[in-house]
Design a protein around this nucleic acid. Structure first.
Length: 105
DNA sequence: CTTATGACTATGA
DNA sequence: TTCATAGCCATAA
């Protein structure tokens, strides 16, 4: 575990997301100091070891508060239930209420 | 070495 | 408002 790439770095940051909070890919990438790698953050999530390893990828959403269509745990609906269980509030549009739940380091 | 791909974001029509 | 395109750059083959 010495050689850590961008992925491992992303996992560590995502793993620091508290319960009831969400963060956008660009937001995470920005915290890493490289706001242009927003895509790789999502890539890292796809390759993520899972929330059991401390990577709550379900708390990572689009900047608009939208979920990843087709690549979530089986459907955005499932992810929505997980987020609701965490205490995240949703908007009538079916988007996460980032205005309230946006993660702040 | 080059090419292809992608859980993003911003911009324009 | 939604839809399409461009730019971004690490990782894999």
């Amino acid at each position: 575990m010495e050689k850590e790439g961008f992925f491992a770095r992303t996992y560590e940051l995502v793993r620091q997301i508290p319960e009831g909070r969400v963060a956008s890919y660009g937001q995470i990438a920005r915290m890493l100091g490289e706001p242009r790698k927003a895509r790789f953050v999502g890539f890292a999530m796809h390759d993520s070891p899972g929330m059991a390893a401390g990577v709550p990828c379900h708390r990572v959403v689009f900047k608009d508060g939208r979920l990843a269509p087709g690549f979530a745990f089986g459907g955005p609906d499932v992810q929505r239930q997980m987020l609701e269980a965490e205490g995240i509030e949703f908007l009538p549009d079916g988007r996460v209420d980032m205005e309230r739940c946006c993660w702040e380091a």
